[in-house]
Nucleic acid binder design. Structure first.
Lengths: 204, 204
DNA sequence: GTAATTTTCGAATTGACAGTCGGAAAGTAG
DNA sequence: CTACTTTCCGACTGTCAATTCGAAAATTAC
């Protein structure tokens, strides 16, 4: 028989292992991150990790899944606030920017690790569900915004890739640069959307 | 005694190995790329690779070095044509875009592999010389362009990161999207620079 | 208490892979 | 043809790291 407390403690230990894995990832990268390193960082023996997770891969997949789930939930709550495609799109980017500036290491992991986890069967990429939903929403907002002349009239897929890249560049490329501020973020969004007629809400 | 022909044949075999390594990299990623795989792809026995290269690392470093050298040379030749910071900057991006569309796999490697080759001592990162020169030129052009009001008045380092990211997004993010056309490239450059006063040359 | 269950982990085991070795094959010179 | 150089490679070695094993320690139930 397992009590509620036991379940909670179990869950806390899982979280402790996940946090240790994240720190090792930051220090060593995903390929160099070893189970020995994670075990030491989390304060368990190596074999104990296998009591809580199936494999090294499962640890990183779980980090991705829960992270993208969080992102998706925040996107969902933004969509509940009425607005034009453009204001909603900008609100999502600003919310993301805000989250990233709070915890750059974790979001760096969320955005970069998927490209480094090669050769996973699709059904194991459990974070993809939420990731795709978010990109789907963004693409939809862009398409609506283009239809309503709020955005430049270009292929929405390319526009999404461009904006995604720009975002990625601002936050993750370049090793030691200063963090981006809210003001700069607004400046870039303004600039990006400068061709259209509707003014953006850039006050925080 | 070695004849000229022998030297040329040796060089061709080196190239064949490099090309094989590139194909394996595309298929498996840099960490999963094994010497056995490269040997098979290039049509040699594994031990023969070590007759031509010191190590696996040297193979990939050499691919990067020669690739960035080519890029740098094309940038240099663009700089010899007189123009404003803005036209030169745009010309460099267009030239890069053109190269990338000719050989996406190779340029994907040139832009992505450096972030995956971790823990190399600085002196072994032989491609950095040309890479830094190119970014230095771009940053300089942005700074001059900002001073001359050809670009929006923001921190040049952030602008470079943003543009670099945008570029990266257009060409490398998103898995199976269609290739970007010259027209779309022009459209994006126009849009990017829309805040300023000077019209761009977008005819090819 | 002590039997049952849960949690822990050091010590093997296993598989993958970079790099080496010793010699064979192929090519060249005279 | 023979001596010499260049090129090639299958089999082996050593290392590193994921995963498993078997049992000990800690906790819980009665």
């Amino acid at each position: 028989m397992v009590t509620q407390r036991q379940l909670e403690e179990r869950e806390m230990r899982r979280q402790r292992i996940l946090q240790g894995a994240l720190r090792v990832y930051q220090r060593d990268g995903i390929e160099k991150a070893t189970m020995d390193g994670i075990a030491k960082e989390a304060g368990f023996g190596k074999a104990t990790l296998y009591y809580y997770f199936e494999s090294k891969e499962e640890i990183f997949v779980e980090l991705l899944r829960s992270g993208w789930e969080q992102i998706w939930e925040s996107v969902e709550s933004i969509l509940e606030v009425p607005g034009t495609p453009r204001t909603q799109f900008a609100a999502i980017l600003k919310s993301l920017a805000h989250r990233i500036s709070r915890d750059p290491a974790f979001y760096g992991f969320l955005f970069q690790a998927p490209t480094q986890l090669t050769g996973l069967p699709a059904e194991r990429q459990t974070w993809r569900k939420h990731q795709n939903r978010m990109y789907g929403v963004l693409r939809g907002l862009l398409e609506d915004g283009i239809a309503q002349e709020e955005f430049p009239r270009v292929d929405s897929e390319l526009l999404l890739r461009a904006i995604g890249g720009l975002f990625h560049g601002l936050f993750f490329l370049g090793t030691g640069g200063q963090d981006i501020t809210d003001e700069n973020m607004d400046l870039f969004l303004d600039n990006l959307f400068s061709g259209s007629s509707v003014a953006m809400e850039t006050e925080s």
